[in-house]
Amino acid sequence: MQQIINFLIRYKTFLLYLFLLLISLIFTFQSHSYHQSKFLNSSNYISGSIYTFSEDITSYFGLREENNRLVEENKKLRIKLFNTIQLSKANIYNSIAIDYDVIRGRVINNSYADQRNYITINRGEKDSIAQDMGVVTDKGILGIVENTSNNFSTVQSILSEKSNINAKIKNSNHFGSLVWENTQDYNVVQLIDIPRLVPLTIGDTIVTGAMSSIFPENIPIGTIKSFDLDNSKSFYFINVELFNDMTNIGNVYIIKNLNRKEVLQLEAETQAND
């Protein structure tokens, strides 16, 4: 017993080091699996307020550009609205007919140089944001909400090793998975699992697919930059250049799928009956 205590006292620094290292490794590896970085994220009160403070200052520098983008988007929406007014007149006051609700928000912290990048936005549970909602900008897809606090949430960017989003080639139904494999280039993501018989051209537009309960169909993602066959020689490995400039993001829209609960429940029941 005496010897054990002596041992502990002599190596107390080393043991403390091992203990703390173990804690940090546990935090790290737990979070490698989906959705477990519960408390080590920047959607908490302290970092959220500090980032809001810094964003309040820096946002002034990009106001003109941001305004131009919003006006441009308003114009696009106007055109769409005028052209579809006849169709939507019937259910414009009928909220049951709406599938997706949109919440606006602002990016208060953005990263794109790591292997797993996260974006912090200034909307949280108070604004009815929950895990697994899609986040887009006026130009295209951005990521999926991962953690929420009362006033803030963190978004797993599409620039993340963990990211995997259903995507397809516009005007066709060939779908694949959007991943980020070449983690050096932050303007290019990869689309995999597209069969080789699909005709492709450089410059084709990639949009989100209909298989996901997170994003609505046909949200723009990017254009094909280059493509090649993968190792199995039966699928394409496509480099997609993003529409979004991931280094410059201000206003975002969070998409809430009002049918998601029902879809998930149905899928779970189907699997349970299997």
């Binding site: 403390l16 703390l20 804690i23 940090s24 790290t28 979070s31 994220n41 920047s42 990263s111 990048n117």
Partner: peptide, 26 residues
């Protein structure tokens, strides 16, 4: 050592890097 662990953890919380900074700093 404890102080450095907390330092790393703070940087981690802000930059969403799990606990990598904490491990390296400790």
């Amino acid at each position: 050592i404890i102080l450095c662990f907390i330092l790393g953890l703070f940087v981690d919380i802000f930059s969403d890097t799990l606990a990598i900074n904490a491990a390296a700093t400790v």
